[in-house]
Simulated scan of single mutants.
Amino acid sequence: MSIHHFFYGTLCHPPLLHAVIGRVPDMQPASLCGYRVREACRDDVPLGFPVLEALSGATAQGFVCTLSPREAERIAWYEAGYNAQDLDVVQEGASLRARVWLPGAGHWQLGAEWSLAEWRPHWGALKTEAAAQFIREAEQIGPEAANARYHSILVRAWSKLAAQAQPMPQDLRRSVQDNDIDVDSQNIGYKGFFLVEDYRLRHRLFAGGFSDTLNRAAFVSGDAAVVLPYDARRDRVLLIEQFRTGPFARGEPNPWMIEAIAGRIDPGESPKQTAHREAMEEAGITLDSLIEAPRFYPTPGAKTEFIHCFIGLTDLPDDAGRPGGVEDEGEDIRPHLVSFDQLMEMVQSGEAGNAPLVVLALWLERMRDGLRAKA
């Protein structure tokens, strides 16, 4: 049995609706009396989607379309946090009963009036990519588990868009052609804060033809920004120390690591914005300016993580830095002010034993004389 739906928000964006149900149905303009469309917010921060607010005399504009039961089920997966109600909407002057998704009580705050035209250039690509990933995960691990991972899904979508917008150069590497990679299956092997995906695929060989079918796994995490704060006048840097699960699981006797400041890039955020935010969150310092350093995949054989590195020029007096971290994320961070020479000694000894810090230390060594001369 077909079901009429009234959409007033992001599902009015045809590419996003296609990502959710697999097609773009016939969408006819319609209106819902007694409601207006508002921005959903949390802690006064817009979340990139709207909600309906009951308001006498108001009218919410949108579209009506007819969906199959299977398509309606996918819409229900995507609209977690909303409640479905069948209401009368107006289409071409006639009343029509349609399913409308209203916000659940207490889920979100109400922000400014919402506009699809204003939403589309800022959020459209991100939310569409995230919707497609959400449906893929919901079909494998269930909609409840996929909704619990939705922020991580947004992070992954933002990283994918960044990879497409600024791909790695290919001056020496082979140029990729269509159909160079044939994916037979892509399945979720583990779900949690991160994701592990199992692939069966073939790829083009340098000598021509294709490889045998390969079983491969990828640890899926988002892009990250790493920044090494440097005071050129005092010739010192600020490092942080924190417990790390990776060294602990490997059997490292002391799993507290010396690192540069780092953090995952949030959806809608640039790598530079992340670097500034993390410097304040993790060490309580403000960076004056950023110098771009190498960007890279630290473990391309198994991880999707991509790292953007920066030298952060700043003032680091003796009292610079404070213990930091986001408590809700279980972070417990201690800052250290060290001289450039001590940093390089730790690189030599191995105590600065993580790739981003080593890369940044060597990059700083390369630029240090010029930075000190300017200071």
Rank of each mutant, 00 (worst) to 15 (best):
L316F: 00
T10I: 03
D88E: 15
L161E: 07
T286S: 10
L201Q: 11
L102F: 02
A260F: 12
F6A: 04
P298Y: 02
P323M: 00
A352H: 11
I311C: 06
L110K: 14
S31D: 02
M344R: 08
R322N: 01
R120Y: 02
P169H: 07
A125G: 00
E71A: 05
A249Q: 12
L238T: 10
R200H: 11
T299A: 14
A40F: 08
F306V: 08
G263H: 00
G189Q: 03
G370S: 03
R250W: 06
D318C: 12
F7M: 09
G284M: 01
L47T: 07
L16S: 02
Y8V: 05
L172V: 00
D231T: 08
A80E: 02
A163D: 14
L195A: 05
V227G: 11
E129C: 11
A145Y: 02
G9M: 05
E137V: 12
F219I: 10
A58F: 10
L287S: 07
G62K: 00
E305I: 15
F193D: 11
V64N: 02
W123I: 01
P247Y: 00
L17T: 01
R70A: 15
V64P: 07
S152R: 10
E281Q: 07
I285A: 08
A54H: 13
A84L: 09
A302T: 14
S95R: 15
F193C: 11
A105M: 01
L360T: 06
A105T: 09
L195Q: 06
E139S: 14
I153G: 06
E53H: 13
S2I: 09
S152V: 09
F340P: 10
M367N: 12
A105Y: 03
L32W: 04
N179A: 13
L11A: 04
P121R: 05
E53M: 14
H4Q: 15
L11V: 03
E113C: 03
P255F: 04
M257V: 11
V326M: 11
D235Q: 13
V326S: 07
D198M: 08
E113W: 05
A157M: 01
A148W: 14
A138V: 02
F296D: 04
G312E: 04
N354V: 03
G324Q: 01
P229C: 02
T314Y: 00
T304C: 05
V45W: 01
L126N: 02
P255M: 02
A249G: 09
T286E: 08
K303H: 12
V24E: 01
R97Q: 11
